[in-house]
Amino acid sequence: MMKDSFSSFHPIVNFGYFAAMLLFGMLLMHPALQVIALLCALTYSILLNGRRAVKFNLLYMVPLFVVMAVMNPVFNHAGVTILFYLKNGNPMTMESILYGVSAACMFVTILIWFSCYNAVMTSDKFIYLFGKIMPALSLIFSMVLRFVPRYKEQIKRISLAQRSIGRDITQGNMLVRARNGITILSIMTTWALENAIETADSMKSRGYGLPRRTSFSLYRFDSRDRLVAGTMLALIAIMVIGEASGRNDMRFFPSIKMAHTTPFSIIVFAAYLLLGMLPVIIHVVEALKWKSISSKT
């Protein structure tokens, strides 16, 4: 899998992008916008995760989409355009069918966005963002991430040590196993507390607890980040204006009413497409640039 260029941007840019896309994805019900969002999410997820994403989308997202789209009209009978009546006498309306499709589309889009979010926003970036708000919390996060693998390893070692005297959770009958499990946990607790004293010494000896602690990170907000952040803000502004002027309106019940498509709504749609495709565009541009550089040397 190729390294995604958008991931190398500043965490604030990454986070801002996903926040905007998730929010718009949940709020905007206009079909054109929904299709754009789904398309962008799909493209980006395939770019990020390759074949795994294709498999994920086909295997889970398509069935989910179908189920959700079918379930809504079966239970929801609002709407004025009645197509036919079900056996139990309930009406099947066009509005509820379309609403089902729209809601399913929104749901699937959000899920795919989250799969992209997971690939881009690694724990470091998350910690960094939170560290900006609460420095103490970011250190705790970092320490937790240090301790979890360490404790896991330790549990494994204790369990092996206990197995070698015939007292592991894999040995003996149910009761004995449960007792052995508790013993292992108890050893683990004693061990953790005992060793935490030394870690506390190490922190103290390196000045932890002094006032005016700073928070260091490897990230730098450079001109590239400024450019992309500026572009994103401009596109988001267009979207907000579009929303405010009613260009994105969509109503399902009781009857379907969609905002008229004006030249301005075309601009809004284009802005949304551009915003959603931003990581893909960045990636393609950088890949092309790389190709042209490497062909020159």
């Binding site: 991430l145 240090r146 870690t199 607890g209 002094l210 602690r213 700073t214 928070s215």
Partner: peptide
């Protein structure tokens, strides 16, 4: 193992300097 506080090598290197502000 007991001396190390954070999860990443670069962060550990910076830990003392962060404390000193």
């Amino acid at each position: 193992d007991n001396g190390i506080v954070t999860d990443k090598v670069w962060h550990e290197l910076a830990f003392g300097l962060e404390s000193l502000g």
